[in-house]
Design a protein around this nucleic acid. Structure first.
Lengths: 162, 162
DNA sequence: CAGAATACGGATAATAAATATCCTTATTTC
DNA sequence: GAAATAAGGATATTTATTATCCGTATTCTG
């Protein structure tokens, strides 16, 4: 089990969009070029973000994407769920129902004990993702990345932002 | 992203093995029949548990599997990792390295900020799985399942345990 | 107003992973 | 010696992921 590569792409793209000045948009083309990704397929990930209302888009030359909410109000979980879907990572197929000892018409009171544990773990994962916002990510990146690279990247993006 | 169905199967099988009297083995055939699963494919999951040293096997008629350690010493994480592998659920392909603004020969100090968050969440998931043992699971099941069904299932298993 | 650039969605192909079955071998029990 | 078993290799089958291509509507630019 491994997350789609689109999750990674979407998160990095959101980090870039988070640094965009108000009212500006950045195109799929620019985002793909900046990250060295296939434009057409990255486009699908960005469309997922758009459908989840995390980003807004505009058409035409100088078109592209921008965040739809303040960076503090978009979490890792938002982005992950936009791309991966909101379904739990453990699917219970209720195999206990196949127990040959079950009386006819027996009905389970609640979800399977195995599933409950797996779902608790899933929720712990989501809680952690929910606790980190894009604002936090940008602050971290600003500390990680050398100032010169940070600035040149910012300028690279600005030059292409419509 | 969704866990393999073999994870579910392995956990349920471990729950059964956890109730086995000392020194007894239960075959793939019995485990498959009890859970309504394809014997050949379930066998692969059990082999994973065996390779991870979570269970011991013996050959011949009256052969099968038993737990290799006390139920309190086998966690959900042990079983999940035996089947799914120990790799993290987020794979960082280090796309930041494609940034066109990077100076020639630039080298990253540490892992990517995005990956660190994703890996923290992965670890939170694993920590939760690590916190629940088979002993805990069996206690929960004993409370969930009606005594009569619990007992008839126990007898069903015992009749087939070598 | 014309042309270019864009997001969007549908269709399709290519690749990889999960699911499943079959068969052979070595071991153990009876 | 016969039967049952785990183990592992080989191979399909199915599903998910990754990727590309194309047509459409929209928006900006000249």
């Amino acid at each position: 089990m491994i997350l789609k590569s689109q999750v990674e792409w979407a998160l990095h793209c959101c980090a870039i969009l988070a640094g965009l000045p108000d009212g500006r948009y950045l195109s799929t083309k620019a985002l793909a070029e900046f990250h060295g990704l296939p434009k057409e397929y990255l486009s699908k990930a960005l469309q997922s973000l758009s459908q989840a209302k995390l980003v807004e888009s505009t058409l035409g030359p100088s078109g592209g994407y921008r965040l739809a909410r303040p960076t503090a109000d978009i979490t890792f979980l938002d982005v992950v769920e936009a791309v991966e879907g909101k379904e739990r990572t453990f699917a219970c197929s209720n195999i206990r129902a196949n127990n040959p000892c079950r009386p006819e018409g027996y009905c389970d009171a609640g979800p399977c004990a195995v599933a409950r544990v797996m779902w608790d773990a899933d929720e712990a994962w989501r809680a952690k993702l929910r606790s980190v916002s894009l604002a936090t990510l940008v602050r971290t990146l600003e500390q990680d990345i050398p100032a010169t690279l940070w600035q040149s990247s910012f300028e690279w993006v600005l030059k292409r932002a419509g």
